[in-house]
Structures are given as C-alpha cells and as structure tokens.
Design a protein around this nucleic acid. Sequence first.
DNA 1: AAGTATTTGCAATTAAGTTGCATTCATGAT
DNA 2: ATCATGAATGCAACTTAATTGCAAATACTT
Lengths: 164, 164
Amino acid sequence: MIEKLTMKTNTEHCDARETLEKTSLYKTPQRIAVLDTLISSSVPLSVNDILKKICTQQKINKVTVYRILTSFKGKGIVREIETARGISYYEISCHHNPVHAHFSCRHCGMLVCLDPLTVSQTWEWFTRPRNFTIDHITITMTGTCHQCEGTLNCNSTADVVNNT
Amino acid sequence: MIEKLTMKTNTEHCDARETLEKTSLYKTPQRIAVLDTLISSSVPLSVNDILKKICTQQKINKVTVYRILTSFKGKGIVREIETARGISYYEISCHHNPVHAHFSCRHCGMLVCLDPLTVSQTWEWFTRPRNFTIDHITITMTGTCHQCEGTLNCNSTADVVNNT
DNA sequence: AAGTATTTGCAATTAAGTTGCATTCATGAT
DNA sequence: ATCATGAATGCAACTTAATTGCAAATACTT
Ligand SMILES: [Mn+2]
Ligand SMILES: [Mn+2]
Ligand SMILES: [Zn+2]
Ligand SMILES: [Zn+2]
C-alpha cells in the first residue's frame, strides 16, 4: 500500500547530433558538447558544472552555455530546474525522461531526480511524516498570467511548451 | 468530479507583537514593520516589495530586511517562495495559512497563492490539459542529504522545520 | 541607570545571469 | 570548392539578488 518514492536512473539515451538536426539548430561544436554533456550525465547540471566538464576538452564561453541552454529550452530539448539556492540546473527532456520531482540539499546543493509521482505517492508526500530530512517543499507553476497574455507581443510561440 | 484549483484568500490574521514575544525575538521597530507588512498583505512579497512599503513610513535598510526574514524563517514565522526568476517571495506561515502551491507569471513576476492541493486536484494538474497557460511545473523538496547530515556542525537546530 | 548581548546600518563583495557588439562560423547556393 | 549570409560565439561590461564584516545603535536584563 505504501509506495516509496525512489530515485530516478536513466538507462536509454538520445543522440546529440540527431537531436540538433531534428530541431533545426546549427550543429556547432559548442552545442554538441553541451548536449553530449547533459546526455551522458546521470544528474542535472548547473552552468558551472557544464563549463567545468567541457573545459577539459575544448574552449567554451560561459555566455555561450547560457545561450545554448536557452535555445535548448525553447526547443524542448532540456528542462530547467530552479533550486532553493537560486541556481538553475538542466536535464535532458526526451521521451526517456518525463517530468518528475527533485530533491535538493540546501547545504551542498546536490540535486537528485525522483521518479514521477503517482497519486498515492503524492498523497504520501503531503500527509505522512518523511524519514528523509526534508524541511521545505516548493511547488511552483510558471507561465503567463491573463493580464500579460494581452500585453504580450505576438512573436513568442516557440519558447512556450515544456511539459514532456 | 472535476475540482477547480482556486486562488487562496486569507481572512484571519495574527498579531505581530504577540508573534515576536512568543518566538522570543527582540521587538524592534524594524521587525514589527516587516511582520506587519507581511501580515497585512494578501500576496507574498519580495524584499524590494517590503522595502518600498515600509520606506514610506520609516527608514529601514535592505540588509536588515534580509536578516529579519532569515530570522523569521528560522522561527517558522514566514515561508520563502522561490520563483522562476530567481527572486524570493515571503508569506506568513501561521495556522491560518497552511502550505500551498503558487502560480508565478514569468513575464511580470506576479505571484498568487493557490488553495492547498487535494489528491484529486493533484491528479488534475498532472494528467489533464489546463486551460491556463502554464508551461512549467516545479516541484522541489529541499532539506539535508545523508552525506551532509554527518558533516553538519551540531549547532543548527533552530533553522530547520518549516512545514506548517 | 548601567551593562550586555543583540540588532541595525553602511560599504564592500559575491555570484548568477544578461546585454551589446565585433568576430567567427555553419549552412545552403552558386 | 568557393562564396554569401544569417546565425552563433567570445569578450567585456553590466545588472541585481543576496551575503559578509564591522562599527554604531538599541532592546532587554538586573
Ligand atoms: Mn530530474
Ligand atoms: Mn502562498
Ligand atoms: Zn548535501
Ligand atoms: Zn503577468
């Protein structure tokens, strides 16, 4: 009856070059490097994480990584996870990896993916005392409010939609 | 059968001075001002929001507001809500105001409180297409990981616990 | 009223993320 | 293969939320 919320482990992966072709993004060495880094990572990565991993092999600029991640987000290739420390982490958003919850340590910043929530698991989380030392749960839905919908320039269609 | 997720509206309020006495915090004009501001607000406020509201009546420093909010968080008087724009918002955490989800507009930053989720409402959110333009749902649980629990100095007991 | 621990204010700092602009580069056409 | 062109990159400067150190002010205890 009591289902445990387990940690998520990816087994299958997508191909970086293939993904870039499908989304009609220029196949630059930087984009391939960022995408390969995310694909081969078992945990979501921050911009600094990505920079450190890539810098051992090729030169890449911090701003470029930010811009690449923004374009990937727009195409739905990656998801952004905002943590309690104000740092964004990024993870692949393919059919192998549906939306799920995360646990983030407020001391070391460590971030782990949790398996997608079922209704009964959600129930567990909201009613039962946990044996983990979680002291804060954030559920935030982001989007466009009614007021802004009217004011908005009619050019933004690509950068909205990110629920795999 | 289909329950709608409605907006939360507070009616009852707690007393600022009383709250400070109960939590054995020095009753300074600054603390009273910050607490009064949060108590009388129907929406969560950022540090800048709080500063602007208070500055019309008394002088207060930005750093002081940050430190006051940190102490309030430690005592469980307020909750912090991190938004997709990297700005924290704060709301009263008393028995009149249990933990709930939030909606945040990624364009204007507007933040509204939503009524606490029931199981069927959670089910709605995760399975059904919404008629609101939400493009991102963040669920993050923050706390202390197993590794850090060991490394942690045995002095921090006050600043953990924040689930009303 | 005096002593003391706490809090406040100010200035300087940190760090994530953004912007403008010149240079380089990937792609498709010749 | 070469060229033209729009797109991507790199660099420097900037923005802004949040933090830190320290001296001055202040709330509480006796
Ligand atoms: Mn994840
Ligand atoms: Mn709220
Ligand atoms: Zn940790
Ligand atoms: Zn808005």
